[in-house]
Simulated scan of single mutants.
Amino acid sequence: MSFKNKGLKIETQVPIPIFWKGKEIGTGYRADILIERKVLIELKSVEKVLPVHPKQLKTCLKVLDLKLGLLINFNEAKFVNGIVRVVNGLDDPS
């Protein structure tokens, strides 16, 4: 059963605009999956999630004015170990 079968609006390769001095000047990045314009999902297959990966996701959440993002790394022995939840508006623990 897919998200679309559940009646959810799914967008893929969503353009993330770049702003300079308050003006949009182009697209700098494309987000992998956006569900219902509420949850942003970024997909990775890397040996290790680096600190830059959640920071990139948080930046995308800020630009799109979203609250919740999931970073999913498929290169893990257990799927659940590859999921990082990122919330826009919460302080970084570092």
Rank of each mutant, 00 (worst) to 15 (best):
H53R: 00
L40N: 06
L90K: 08
I16N: 08
L64D: 07
I10N: 01
N5T: 11
A77L: 02
K23R: 13
I35N: 03
V14N: 09
K44M: 02
N81E: 15
T59D: 06
D32W: 06
C60I: 11
I18N: 05
P93Y: 14
V14P: 05
I25Q: 06
K4P: 00
A77T: 05
Y29H: 10
L40V: 10
E76H: 10
V86M: 05
K55G: 05
K48W: 14
V63S: 04
G7I: 02
K6V: 09
K23Q: 12
H53D: 11
K62P: 00
L64S: 02
T27F: 11
V14A: 08
G82V: 09
L43P: 07
P17C: 05
V87E: 10
V86E: 06
F3G: 02
S94R: 05
L64A: 06
I10V: 15
L8C: 02
N81T: 07
K38T: 09
V14M: 04
R30E: 12
D91F: 10
L43V: 13
V49E: 09
D32P: 11
V52C: 09
V80K: 07
L70K: 04
V87L: 05
L70D: 01
N81M: 04
P54C: 04
C60E: 14
C60Y: 15
G28Q: 09
E47C: 03
P93L: 13
S45K: 08
S2H: 05
W20H: 08
S94P: 09
V49K: 03
E42V: 12
V87R: 00
L68W: 13
V86Q: 03
S94Y: 15
V84A: 04
I35F: 07
I33D: 07
K9F: 00
L40W: 12
K23E: 15
I18P: 07
G26T: 13
V63W: 08
T12K: 07
V63Q: 03
G7A: 03
L8W: 05
D92C: 06
V86A: 01
